[in-house]
């Protein structure tokens, strides 16, 4: 029987994959995908909690999070595009004009 604990464990795994991906990957687009994965891990935990507690709050918050994620993707891709036009690269280690 698959219970709430399993869903929460899966969301913890997803969150960890996202967090590690955001830190170790070098391509800005991939980093961005990792961030989306972290948000979706949280969504999964919200829905699992909502299901086991019988409260609708957790399910409604997911819609807001999805909207915010879309807005963030819109801004993020615009910024990446502006940077690419300046520098012709999306590799995180080459974007290092500003340091220390």
């Amino acid at each position: 029987m698959i219970g709430t604990v399993h869903y929460l464990a899966l969301s913890a795994v997803l969150f960890s994959i996202g967090a590690v991906g955001a830190v170790v990957r070098r391509n800005v687009i991939i980093i961005f995908m990792s961030i989306e994965l972290m948000l979706n891990a949280a969504n999964l935990a919200f829905v699992a909690g909502s299901n086991s507690l019988g409260s609708m709050n957790g399910q409604s918050i997911v819609f807001f999070v999805m909207t915010v994620a879309a807005a963030e993707a819109a801004v993020g891709l615009a910024v990446i595009l502006a940077l690419f036009r300046n520098r012709q690269t999306v590799a995180a280690d080459e974007i290092a004009l500003l340091k220390w």
Binding site: A22, V28, I31, V79, I80, A82, L83, I95, L97, L98
Partner: peptide, 9 residues
């Protein structure tokens, strides 16, 4: 653009 991207990530 670089500042914006770092902030975003």
């Amino acid at each position: 653009a670089e500042a914006s991207l770092k902030y975003l990530i």
